[in-house]
Measured scan of single mutants.
Amino acid sequence: VRQEELAAARAALHDLMTGKRVATVQKDGRRVEFTATSVSDLKKYIAELEVQTGM
């Protein structure tokens, strides 16, 4: 499950970095929206997932 969450989070980051205004991911069973202003929060979430998956 964590691998899927990590892939979704990375895709969301890619979307935001390429101009999409809002990206949505499932985080702990709930839907979370990230915007360009919350990229740093999304990067932290990705880092947490990488630690949890041993990457």
Rank of each mutant, 00 (worst) to 15 (best):
T18G: 07
E48C: 13
F34W: 05
D41A: 13
V22D: 04
E4D: 07
L49K: 01
V51S: 12
D15S: 10
A12Y: 02
L6G: 01
R30N: 08
D28K: 03
A9S: 03
T37K: 09
A9T: 03
E48Y: 06
G19H: 04
V22T: 04
L49R: 02
L49I: 05
A36C: 13
A11R: 14
G54S: 13
R21D: 15
V39K: 04
Q52N: 04
V25R: 01
A23R: 03
A23Q: 03
T24V: 15
Q52F: 12
A47Q: 13
D41R: 05
E33Y: 11
G54T: 06
E50T: 04
S40A: 14
L6D: 01
T35G: 05
H14L: 11
R31C: 15
A47E: 13
T37Y: 08
S40C: 13
D28P: 01
K44S: 10
K20H: 14
A7W: 11
Q52Y: 13
K44H: 05
Q52V: 14
E50M: 08
G29L: 02
E5Y: 04
Q26P: 07
A7Q: 13
G54E: 10
T53E: 06
R10N: 08
Y45P: 00
S38F: 06
V25P: 01
A47C: 10
G29K: 03
L6R: 02
S38C: 10
T53P: 07
E4Q: 09
D15I: 07
A23S: 05
E48D: 11
A36R: 05
A11I: 10
Q52K: 11
F34M: 03
K43R: 14
K20D: 04
D41T: 09
T37E: 15
F34K: 00
A11Y: 06
R10H: 10
A11M: 13
R30M: 15
A8E: 15
L16V: 03
I46Y: 00
L16N: 00
G29V: 01
R31S: 13
R31E: 14
L49T: 02
R2T: 11
T53W: 11
D28C: 08
D15R: 07
A36I: 08
R10W: 11
L42D: 00
E33H: 10
A12G: 04
L42W: 01
V1T: 08
K20W: 05
A47G: 09
S40H: 11
L42S: 00
Y45H: 05
K20P: 01
V39I: 14
A23I: 08
V39D: 02
E48M: 11
H14V: 13
Y45K: 02
R10Y: 15
A12Q: 02
T18V: 09
A36Y: 06
G19Q: 03
L6A: 02
T35E: 05
V22N: 07
D41M: 10
A11G: 09
D28Q: 05
T53V: 15
K20A: 13
Y45I: 04
Q52S: 12
R30T: 12
V51E: 14
V39R: 03
S38R: 10
K27G: 03
E4M: 05
G19E: 02
I46P: 00
M17A: 08
T37D: 13
A12W: 02
V1K: 13
V22S: 11
Q52H: 07
G29Q: 04
A11N: 12
I46D: 01
E48L: 11
A23V: 15
R31F: 15
K44R: 13
G19C: 05
D15P: 00
A11Q: 14
K20Y: 08
L6Y: 05
T37P: 03
M55G: 12
R30Q: 15
A12L: 02
A8Q: 14
L42C: 00
R31W: 15
T18M: 11
D15M: 10
E50Q: 06
V51R: 09
A9D: 00
E50K: 06
A36P: 12
V25E: 01
E33A: 05
E48S: 05
M17F: 07
V39N: 02
A8I: 12
A23F: 03
V32T: 04
A9W: 03
S40M: 14
A36G: 07
R10C: 13
G19S: 04
K20I: 08
K44Y: 09
E50L: 11
D28R: 02
A9E: 01
L42G: 00
L6S: 01
A9R: 00
D28A: 04
T24K: 06
E50C: 06
L49S: 01
H14I: 12
A8F: 09
Y45R: 02
D41H: 08
V22P: 03
T53S: 08
F34C: 02
V1Q: 13
Q3V: 13
D41I: 11
E50G: 05
V22G: 05
